Computed example of a mutant assay.
Amino acid sequence: MNHAHVFFETSILEDWLKEDIGYLDLTSTLLHIGNQSARITWRTRGATVSACTEEVVRLLHTRQVSAIEHLPSGQHANDGQALVTAEGPAQALLDVWKVGQNLLEYACSVATRTHQLVETVKHLNPNVGILTTRKHPPGLRRIAIKSTMAGGAWPHRLGLSETILVFPQHRALLAENGWAVVKEKLKLNANGLAEKKVVIEAATLEEALLAVDAGADVIQFDKVAPAHLQEWCATLRQQFPALKLLAAGGITTDNAANYANCGVDGLVTSSLYYGPPADISVVVERL
């Protein structure tokens, strides 16, 4: 597990509350219960991996709640175990109730799916890493990164400015001799980026060999069957021992075991972001 200290601006957290609260909590105002002292507890129904509990704590802090306990991200939680518990004015707790629950249900489900996939692959080949993409709905990147890292994966690519990754879509915008132009441009322009690896996507062994000739440090195979990868990786390892190899496209918990021993260094997936939410109960008590 990786306890990722992902940066969330306070304004982001406040926007989550602003979206849900609007102007006021009409129900609690009508019932005159906002000033009571209360306790709130978010518990998991079923075993899960905790994620983004620190952000729930910070949401409570924005409402001036200070008496808070939480299970850190990346920890295993048993059925019925408390993820976050807080005491304070009832209205402050109610303001965070649903936003916190929604956050935990998504984040913990992603962390749990990630952990399951990581453990499956690690059992078969501990040298293969699990890498997660940026293919999630806009606005979820920080939550997605923190949740997958809590489950034991690493981010593949945080954004366009972080890595050099040449896709077929880039080559399509070059001249007809695209591979030659890629080689020329990388040689001419990438010298000043000596600390950056050049990743090039390929769909065949022939494309992989052209990518290596163009200057690739890493080949990312897209939607290639494990049987083909096993053959191609063996060929590339023999010719280019320092070359790194990745498998991407359509990799899920169901088929990851088939890729674990095909010769790649890492599996790139976006499937972990999607699935049933974790079941998180919320109990509010009067003190």
Score class of each variant (00 low, 15 high):
K185T: 06
K185L: 14
L186V: 14
K187L: 14
K187C: 04
L188K: 13
N189E: 10
N189D: 02
N189S: 07
N189H: 15
A190E: 04
A190S: 15
N191W: 06
G192S: 13
G192P: 00
G192M: 10
G192N: 12
L193T: 01
L193Q: 10
L193C: 05
A194E: 12
E195L: 14
V198P: 08
V198F: 04
V199S: 06
I200P: 04
I200N: 00
E201S: 09
A202E: 01
A203W: 01
E207F: 05
A208I: 02
L210Q: 14
A211K: 04
A211C: 08
V212C: 06
V212G: 00
D213K: 09
D213L: 00
A214N: 02
A214R: 01
A216Y: 07
A216R: 04
A216C: 04
A216N: 02
D217Y: 09
V218C: 06
Q220W: 06
F221C: 06
F221Q: 02
D222N: 10
A225M: 13
P226A: 03
P226D: 09
A227Y: 03
A227P: 00
H228P: 00
L229G: 08
L229P: 12
E231Q: 15
W232M: 12
C233V: 02
T235E: 14
T235C: 12
T235A: 13
L236M: 03
R237Y: 11
R237C: 03
Q238I: 04
Q238E: 15
Q239M: 10
Q239S: 13
Q239T: 11
Q239V: 00
F240M: 05
F240Q: 11
A242G: 02
A242Y: 07
A242P: 00
L243N: 06
K244M: 15
L245K: 05
L245G: 01
L246G: 02
L246T: 00
A247E: 09
A247C: 11
A248C: 09
A248K: 00
G250R: 07
G250T: 06
G250F: 09
I251Q: 08
T252P: 03
T253V: 12
N255M: 12
N255W: 11
A257Q: 09
N258C: 14
Y259W: 11
A260E: 04
N261T: 15
G263Q: 13
V264N: 00
D265I: 11
G266C: 07
L267K: 07
L267W: 10
S270T: 11
S270D: 12
L272G: 03
L272P: 02
Y273E: 01
Y273W: 13
Y273C: 06
Y274G: 01
